[in-house]
């Protein structure tokens, strides 16, 4: 039973909360993929998307998810809004909140912006990612994909390669997978995989082959081009040579291992182009599951709000 106004991170959720959301997500997916649109659980209310950072799949996924469950969805186009005139986050939030929206789905470049929004809005805040803190629906859709393919989380070895330091996806995945009993190994350049993250319950290994060895799940993370300017590694060519995943690397994983990526992929950087059609790649399913997970989260939040009215 969901009992929070907002959905802004995995960190404070219980194992039961996560199970509850995943169960609902599978139910939503069944209705979605079996083309039984008329049978999809419906709710009433409205949601506004507030994306201060660019996004294709997360934003559209939330948009579709909202509409699938019957929400009236609007978007504040940040690029043409008063944010460009220097309006503060607080002002923007209060404006949208005062218009009486039930749900604000927000993405923002600053860590803690979701907590800040949740504290200052009557609307329910749903995180679509904040800074380098968390991206909770991504972790849920990844979990859903893993569960779908593996049946259970217990004892799974999940290897995540890339810019861990700046990755909200890696953090949310770590929180979730730890709670569910899987074991996470992070790999990547020493400048982007801080040793201190072991204190959060991850294993750190700087050798890609060693990291991928016997993994059940191998996940590449997007190397953000803007990070290159921070001088964390010499160039993309060297990154690809040292930490790029190709078929030969993937062979170190278990026979039935799956390949994941939160996308968009820089093909030829973190993943070799040959993997685009690899049978073990579940990247497209991640996208589908993303809609289901977001339907579940939105539905759950609306139920919470409606029950409290």
């Amino acid at each position: 039973m969901w009992n929070y106004k907002d959905f802004i991170g995995i960190k404070n959720l219980t194992k039961e909360d996560i199970k509850h959301i995943l169960d609902l997500s599978f139910e939503m997916k069944q209705q979605m993929i079996n083309d039984k649109a008329r049978e999809i659980k419906q709710t009433r209310g409205n949601m506004t998307t507030l994306f201060f950072e660019n996004s294709t799949r997360t934003k559209h996924s939330f948009y579709m998810a909202g509409q699938n469950i019957g929400l009236r969805v609007t978007d504040l186009a940040i690029g043409t809004s008063s944010v460009q005139k220097g309006e503060s986050l607080m002002d923007t939030l209060q404006t949208i909140d005062s218009m009486g929206t039930d749900i604000i789905v927000m993405r923002h470049s600053e860590s803690g912006s979701q907590e800040f929004a949740a504290r200052n809005c009557k609307a329910s805040i749903i995180s679509a990612g904040d800074g380098t803190n968390e991206h909770p629906t991504q972790a849920l859709l990844d979990a859903m994909t893993i569960l779908d393919k593996k049946g259970s989380f217990e004892g799974l070895k999940v290897t995540i390669a890339g810019d861990i330091l700046h990755s909200r996806v890696a953090k949310s995945n770590l929180y979730l997978l730890n709670k569910m009993g899987a074991k996470v190994t992070f790999t990547g350049p020493t400048t982007l995989v801080p040793k201190a993250i072991t204190q959060m319950g991850a294993k750190v290994c700087y050798d890609l082959k060693e990291s991928v060895k016997d993994a059940d799940v191998v996940m590449g993370l997007r190397i953000q081009m803007e990070r290159q300017n921070s001088g964390a590694f010499p160039d993309l060519r060297e990154y690809n040579k040292t930490y790029g995943i190709d078929g030969a690397i993937f062979d170190y994983a278990k026979k039935d291992a799956i390949l994941m990526h939160p996308a968009p992929v820089n093909w030829g950087v973190e993943l070799d182009r040959s993997l685009f059609t690899a049978p073990y790649s579940v990247i497209s399913e991640q996208v589908t599951n993303g809609v289901a997970v977001r339907m579940a989260v939105l539905y759950m939040i609306m139920e919470y709000r409606n029950n409290r009215k």
Binding site: S111, G112, G131, N133, L165, A196
Partner: peptide, 10 residues
């Protein structure tokens, strides 16, 4: 800098 910053994403 350290584990707290890492945890909070700061």
């Amino acid at each position: 800098a350290g584990s707290k910053a890492l945890e909070l994403g700061l």
